[in-house]
Design a binder for these strands. Structure first.
Lengths: 232, 232
DNA sequence: GATGCTAATTGATTTTTGTCAGGCAGGCCA
DNA sequence: TGGCCTGCCTGACAAAAATCAATTAGCATC
């Protein structure tokens, strides 16, 4: 079934509006690959040869400097990454590794640029995608610069609860040390911060979190759509 | 001369490739306004009514949360801002204020979106602009998460020196407290950090900086194109 | 069940950063 | 000139966060 993944890719906002002809051209040299966990898919500084699409599994975007690294974002299906680098034909600014067994579609960057040049609808879809990505990073930066680590954690938990459709308890989607890195703190500090949230009704049991008094936690977290609303 | 500013706007990458007809349509309801210093042009959360273009002066983008604020970026002529919000028809994520007397062109957001919908070249120009903006924020976030405040300052000074074409001494482009906010630290801390850089050959006299031994400072700063290169 | 591995936790400590209060220098204006 | 801003600097202190070392808990494997 070499083209079974076409449908999945086609379903993304990024590709759903373009003509069948251009989509085929884009997919001509594209292919899918299965990766085991902990494989570094791309490394920052490398030329952007492929636009990547996570079809299943989980991928971590991270950055390195001077011997240490930090997690920048975690991607779940179905989403693309490294779009900006592909478009600008510039080196990757972030590295990516699989967190679990993952299926990744690879679309040659030069094909993306070629179709982009001739297909206005595709260009408009890319604009929508990039504008959303840009705003996500701006929100992340506000989170980082305006809030303390405890506040970041509190807001993160509230967002996770929203994701779980408001359920009182839910599971953290990955290891705590990765979460710590994502939130810009050390694992030790995350551990202490979780404890510090106990008076606000946050119970922790391994990866299981329950929020017994959301209003109380919100009093500390002071969430705002301008930072915490994913869609905005 | 009501249309003298058309030329300046047209000179931007964003508008230089589009047809004369579409450009005129875009400019039909656009206008220029002069603002004194310290005027808040837009406030985060407001609907994005206009795409802004800084023609002269200087504009600070900043964000507020829970009673305090932080500087996100400083814009100099000629550049646009709040493009992503305009395109997505979403509220501003950042506020903006003039730092000095400034001339700002205002283009109605709905016109931008209308032309965007019909003009593929314009859409492509927007992609290029957004991809660049996205990558800038990613670099800023890496700077913030991977480096200490002293390292951020050291790298900032090196970048400023590059901007001054490598001159041994140059002037800081704005007040130190704004710089502190931009670098994610307090003014007091910036003051101390500048002193801490003295052993690395950084001399400070008011707004005047001179770097007597760039190699030494680079040893501390460890600059990398993947964070510090503006164009990448 | 014992062994070894890894992640998570905990406590003690240091480093980094922020806060608060006071002082100083330069610019502005009555 | 004197008074009064404002921005910046300085020192003492407090808070936040990182680091280091040691322990514990959970898992998989033999």
């Amino acid at each position: 079934m070499p083209d079974s993944f076409f449908e999945e890719v086609r379903g993304l906002h990024l590709f759903s509006e373009m003509s069948e002809e251009n989509f085929s051209a884009l997919m001509r040299a594209a292919y899918v690959q299965n990766f085991p966990p902990q494989i570094e898919l791309i490394s920052e500084g490398d030329p952007s040869d492929f636009l990547h699409v996570v079809l299943s599994g989980k991928v971590d975007l991270f950055a390195r400097w001077n011997g240490h690294e930090t997690s920048m974002a975690t991607l779940r299906p179905v989403s693309t990454f490294i779009l900006a680098a592909t478009i600008r034909d510039a080196p990757y600014l972030m590295s990516a590794r699989t967190l679990e067994k993952s299926r990744i579609a690879l679309i040659p960057s030069q094909d993306v640029r070629a179709i982009f040049d001739i297909d206005g609808d595709f260009a408009r879809a890319i604009v929508a995608e990039l504008a959303l990505a840009y705003r996500s990073v701006v929100k992340a930066q506000k989170d980082l610069k305006l809030r303390s680590s405890l506040e970041r954690l509190a807001n993160y938990l509230l967002r996770q609860q929203d994701r779980a459709h408001g359920a009182e308890d839910f599971t953290l989607p990955y290891e705590k040390r990765r979460l710590a890195s994502l939130l810009g703190m050390t694992p030790e500090n995350l551990s202490r911060a979780l404890k510090a949230l106990k008076p606000y009704g946050v119970l922790v049991d391994g990866n299981r979190i329950s929020i017994t008094d959301r209003a109380d936690l919100e009093g500390l977290a002071k969430p705002t759509p301008l930072i915490d609303d994913f869609l905005l």
